[in-house]
Amino acid sequence: MMAYMNPGPHYSVNALALSGPSVDLMHQAVPYPSAPRKQRRERTTFTRSQLEELEALFAKTQYPDVYAREEVALKINLPESRVQVWFKNRRAKCRQQRQQQKQQQQPPGGQAKARPAKRKAGTSPRPSTDVCPDPLGISDSYSPPLPGPSGSPTTAVATVSIWSPASESPLPEAQRAGLVASGPSLTSAPYAMTYAPASAFCSSPSAYGSPSSYFSGLDPYLSPMVPQLGGPALSPLSGPSVGPSLAQSPTSLSGQSYGAYSPVDSLEFKDPTGTWKFTYNPMDPLDYKDQSAWKFQIL
């Protein structure tokens, strides 16, 4: 009977010793046993002879290597770790002494450095960015050149030099007046198309007034536009458009034309069986010896 009264063996659950049927240790109110408190290391007290050895090595170098620390530790009968900690504390003490010396050398008012006064946003004049500046400075420094007289040679050079070769001289006033084509001369031969040399188009003023001019072949195509416009036809070669000034309004060009419109200028042929003959000019830059190549039959 006494065997049943004795408590059973101890069981360990999660490293906790349980005594038989008792489960009081598993209750929430019972805390787990805490780790033992780490003991504080005792402070090391250095003797005068030990301090002399350490100070002598510190005077040589503030960062001794492990071999120098072990050698000193053997002399003063201390572990190497204590020597390492002593050098660490000695360097910190040396830095603190240097900072105190710097503070003593500075004057009393030198510690508080005078800061520059901050400028207020409204006091300083700042350039306004509302208006974009002129990058080319046209509004201040540029002045347009004065327009020359209508009959000045410089204007003629600016007008005619675009179309004339570089080897030719500017046309005088008398020749510029001949550039304007007359109405009857352009409409006299509506079906004849003559190819003149390129030099005649640039230099010869008579080429624009003769039936064999460069633009005589364009007349049949330009004249039928007159009834559609409801007024006189516009002429690209009329009046002052080739003269001194090219800047004319469309209203000033509306009254200039080749001449009176005639039914002869239409595109319809009077004789459907007729042929169109292209007159060959020996001055043509295209060297075609066979003139029969310039004739064709309209079917």
Rank of each mutant, 00 (worst) to 15 (best):
P31L: 15
S139L: 06
R40N: 12
D265G: 15
K38T: 09
A114F: 04
D265A: 15
V157T: 02
R43A: 14
A17W: 12
S124Y: 10
K120V: 02
P227N: 01
W294H: 00
Q39G: 07
Y67N: 06
L146I: 05
A68W: 12
G259K: 11
P250L: 13
S164D: 00
L267F: 11
P147G: 06
V160Y: 03
W294N: 00
F201D: 00
S139R: 06
C94Q: 05
H27A: 05
S254E: 02
V83K: 14
A174S: 08
V66G: 07
L286K: 08
L186Q: 00
F215Q: 00
Q291L: 12
Y67Q: 03
V85L: 15
T194R: 11
A233G: 03
A247K: 10
Q228D: 03
Y4K: 03
R69F: 11
S128Y: 03
P190F: 11
D284L: 15
R69A: 13
P36Y: 09
M26N: 01
D24T: 13
G137T: 09
S128N: 06
L136N: 03
Y214D: 00
W86F: 14
S167I: 08
F46Q: 14
G243L: 12
P240D: 00
S12Q: 09
Y67M: 09
R41I: 14
P133L: 03
G239P: 05
Q104P: 05
G109D: 10
P133N: 04
K38R: 09
G217M: 15
P240F: 13
V157M: 04
S266Y: 12
Y214H: 01
Y288W: 14
A17S: 04
G255V: 11
A15V: 13
S262E: 02
D134C: 12
P108W: 04
P211F: 12
D65M: 13
P165L: 10
Y142M: 10
A174H: 04
Q175S: 10
E52H: 10
S22V: 10
W294P: 00
S81T: 10
C132Y: 00
L229T: 03
K60T: 10
T129L: 06
R90I: 14
T159S: 03
W163L: 02
R48M: 06
N89L: 14
S254P: 02
S34N: 05
Y32Q: 03
G151Q: 07
Q256I: 10
A192F: 13
Q104L: 04
Q100W: 08
A117K: 09
S210I: 15
Y261I: 06
S257D: 03
L78E: 13
P197A: 06
D65R: 13
S262Y: 15
P232H: 15
P227K: 09
V242R: 10
L25N: 03
A3F: 15
R126W: 02
V23I: 13
P125S: 09
L253Y: 08
L74C: 05
T47V: 11
P172E: 01
